[in-house]
Write a protein that binds this DNA or RNA. Structure first.
Lengths: 213, 213
DNA sequence: GTCTATATGATGATAGAC
DNA sequence: GTCTATCATCATATAGAC
C-alpha cells in the first residue's frame, strides 16, 4: 500500500514550535513528547526529525520564540528608568503567558538569538545612560530575578482556599483562603509594588553614583 | 530460596527524602525516578511504596524539608526591615542550594507544613509591625518573587564564555564572556543590590503609610 | 517491611520504504 | 519529507511470597 505523501509539506519549524508551545502551556513539560507533538500536528513522531535534530532543539526554539515576543523598542529613547519599567512589564507579560517555560528560560540566553538580543538591549541602554558596567550588570540581573520569579506561578493561587487549613495552626493566615478569589489583583499588585520600588531605588542610586560623578 | 529480609528496616521517610534530594540536586527532576531512588538506597523500587503512597508524595516531602531549613527566628524581635533582610538571605540560601526544586517550591505552600509556617511568620511579622494587610501581602509576594527568581539559576552562568558569540551581532555584550569567571560575585552582588533596594524602598513607604497614619 | 514478578504503557530515536 | 516498524529503555504501580 503506497504511503500517502502530501505535495505540500505539512510541517514547518514554525508550526512545530507553535504547537509545542501550546502543549507546554496547557499540560506542562512532561506532556511534551515527540509522539504527542506529532499527533497534534497530524503526523507521526519520526517526521519531526526532518526539521529538528533532537527534542532539545525543539525546546530551544520554543524558548527563543517566547523571548522574541518581548518588545525592546523602548530602549534608546527617553529616560532609562521609564524604559526599564516598560520593559519589565512586557517581559513579565511574555513569560507569565508561558509559566512552564520560565525555569528553562531563566537559565540564561545561551546561544538563542532573541535572548541575546534582549540582554544586549537592556545592558546597552543602562551603560548608554551612564551607569558603570558593574552596576548595569547587577541591575539587569536583579530585574531578571524579579520578573522571572513573578512569572513562575501565582503567589495567591499557592494558598489553599479551605479555611480549616489555617485555623489553629497558622493564625496569621486566617484570611489566606480568600487570596484565590482575587489572585489577579494580588499578583499584579505585588509585581507593580516591587517594580516601582526597584526602579525608584535605582533612580536614587543613579543620583549618587552617576550624577555626582 | 528465602528472601533476605533485614532485621532492622533499611528505609525510613527521612532517608528516602535525603537521597531523593541529593539526586534532584545532582541530576535534576528527570533523573529522580523510583527505580533510581531505590537503587541509591540499596533496595528495589516497590519498597518505597511502604513509606509513601505515590512518587508525588515523596516530592512534597522533599519540598517541605527544603523549606524547613529556612530560619524564621528573626521575626518577632527587632526591626521588621532588618528581619526581612535576614530572612531573605536565609530563604535564598535554602532555595539556591536546590535550584531544581525552585519551580516546584514557587507554586506556593499548598498543604506543606513548613511552607505554611514560613508564610505565617513573614505575614505575621509585617502586620505586627503595623503594615496594613494588603501591603503585608504584596510585600511578602514581591520578596518571594525576587528570592525565587534569584534561586532558579545563575544569571552569570547563562552567558556562553566564547567571545565570538557576541562579536559583531551583540556589541554591548562584548565582555559578557567574562561573566562566567566571576559568576558568584555577579549573582551575589545582584541579589544584595536588589534586596537592599527593595527593603530600603519599603522603609520609605512605611514612613508614608504607617508612621503618617 | 522488603522482596520477586509482573501489568501496562510511555519515551527518544533510527532504518529504510516510498 | 512522511511513512511503517522497531529498538532499547524507561516509567509508576500492584499482587502476593516470606
Amino acid at each position: 500500500m503506497p504511503v500517502a505523501r502530501p505535495r505540500q509539506p505539512v510541517l514547518s519549524r514554525q508550526r512545530i514550535v507553535e504547537v509545542a508551545t501550546a502543549i507546554l502551556d496547557k499540560e506542562g513539560l512532561d506532556a511534551l513528547s515527540t509522539r504527542r507533538l506529532a499527533q497534534e500536528l497530524g503526523v507521526r513522531a519520526p517526521s519531526l526529525y526532518n526539521h529538528f535534530a533532537t527534542k532539545d532543539a525543539i525546546l530551544d526554539a520554543v524558548a527563543d520564540a517566547i523571548i522574541a515576543q518581548v518588545d525592546l523598542r523602548m530602549f534608546g529613547k527617553g529616560e532609562w528608568a521609564v524604559a526599564l519599567t516598560e520593559w519589565a512589564r512586557t517581559y513579565r507579560r511574555a513569560l507569565a503567558a508561558h509559566p512552564n517555560a520560565v525555569p528553562f528560560l531563566a537559565h540564561g540566553p545561551a546561544l538563542r538569538p532573541a535572548a541575546l538580543a534582549l540582554a544586549d538591549a537592556v545592558y546597552g541602554a543602562l551603560v548608554e545612560a551612564g551607569w558603570p558596567p558593574s552596576y548595569a550588570t547587577r541591575i539587569g540581573a536583579a530585574m531578571r530575578y524579579f520578573v522571572a520569579g513573578s512569572s513562575l506561578g501565582s503567589f495567591a493561587l499557592g494558598f489553599p482556599d479551605d479555611p480549616s487549613v489555617y485555623a489553629q495552626r497558622y493564625p496569621n493566615l486566617r484570611d489566606a483562603h480568600r487570596l484565590r478569589g482575587r489572585h489577579r489583583q494580588v499578583d499584579d499588585g505585588a509585581f507593580e509594588l516591587g517594580l516601582a520600588t526597584l526602579v525608584r531605588g535605582f533612580e536614587t542610586l543613579y543620583a549618587q553614583v552617576v550624577d555626582a560623578r
